[in-house]
Design a protein around this nucleic acid. Sequence first.
DNA 1: TATGCACAAATTGTATACACTGCTGCCGTG
DNA 2: CACGGCAGCAGTGTATACAATTTGTGCATA
Lengths: 235, 235
Amino acid sequence: MPRSVSPASLTPTPAPLGPDQPTMTHAEKIRDQLEHEIASGHLIPGVRLDESEIADRFGVSRTPVREAFRLLAANEMVELKGRMGATVRKPSAQTVIEMFQVMAELEGLCARLAARRVTPELRMRMERTHAQLVDASRKSDVDGFYDINQTFHETIYEAASNHYLAEQTRRLRNKTAAYRRRVTFQPNRFASTLDEHSRVMEAIFSHNEEAAHSTMRDHVNLLSDDMRDFIASFQ
Amino acid sequence: MPRSVSPASLTPTPAPLGPDQPTMTHAEKIRDQLEHEIASGHLIPGVRLDESEIADRFGVSRTPVREAFRLLAANEMVELKGRMGATVRKPSAQTVIEMFQVMAELEGLCARLAARRVTPELRMRMERTHAQLVDASRKSDVDGFYDINQTFHETIYEAASNHYLAEQTRRLRNKTAAYRRRVTFQPNRFASTLDEHSRVMEAIFSHNEEAAHSTMRDHVNLLSDDMRDFIASFQ
DNA sequence: TATGCACAAATTGTATACACTGCTGCCGTG
DNA sequence: CACGGCAGCAGTGTATACAATTTGTGCATA
């Protein structure tokens, strides 16, 4: 039986331990946790974030909570409305579509650079990840598919050798995570994704930059297309 | 005589009045002012930002200053180093090059969408802006050239009709402003820029999406090339 | 002279108290 | 009954005080 997708879970999962710096300030820990809860869907877009309530939940004062809000605000994960409080950002359907368009282009650039710079070692890792994805698809393992898919894209970021680009793309992926996650359910997306990934890999391995760029862009845009109806229902 | 470029000025200029909301919090005002001072070059990358000092300067307590730092941090204008203070972000030469590569792609996407959606009204505005740019070039008006060039790109963002994309591109332009500004000095860049803009416009007006994308991308990449030596000297 | 440790000063992180704003609900009036 | 104003409240913005950590300085020692 496939694991249930995270948003269905009732208790917030802890954020996957990040850099785990020993001197991590409270504000940063709260930021990471809230960001994770937003991306995973535990915090629904539009809900108000109460400073005192969250402060109590984490057992700290309002100060670090406020700082976490500011950090999240500039990441566009939450919206600050003056004295009217902070809310989980709820982009309009139009904005979500626009975000996907930008993401498609950034992912496309990643693929283009990957086609230029891919190494045999990375090629092997991509193929192995792809095989895992096929496996998850066979088992209808939704969560597994979602995670391995993430790894596949991460590997391409790495092959692109542009840390700044990787970071920006990763951020955008995270911002759209709450929306992408739902589409993973659609059974026909499994097959389509695998097929599209194959074409992207083929282009990258043959060092065909243009093809890598366009196939990856189309891959993300197709995802976007599949989501439009669903996105509209978000509003 | 050409006006001197801003970084040469000794006194920080006030931030150009933005949205100017009546209920603008201290933290937001400080953020805008500091962001402007960083982009204009008055605050040099790498310098430490002292909370108390800035608090005194703005006549407020440390609290709103700290919040402004957090807001700037997520915009990647400022780097927070735990208890070791905040500094104006100083990206490595490698990172600056990477930022330009991403910006080239985003500007390219703007041009692509503009080619698809440009209206006669916007075409007229672009041509008018271009004429102003030619004029500034003749007068060797460096600051004017810089500002009008900004307007030219803004017009393309508008033609692209993707607000999210426009915002992201604008941000990245702002982050690279301190570096781009220096290159404007180079006399040969005037002529090259005018020529490249002409080609971009031609592609956009003829609704040639691919050409619009690639000419704009090349335009930004050429700027990046002209900067590499200079960027290296920043370190 | 160079190195290591200890202590002091400076600076940031957090908590708490107060000020101010926007909202809610009630009441009076038309 | 509908509408407008006023008071009280809830919640954010700011200031200040205190705790924790980093950094710099000086001295002792090899």
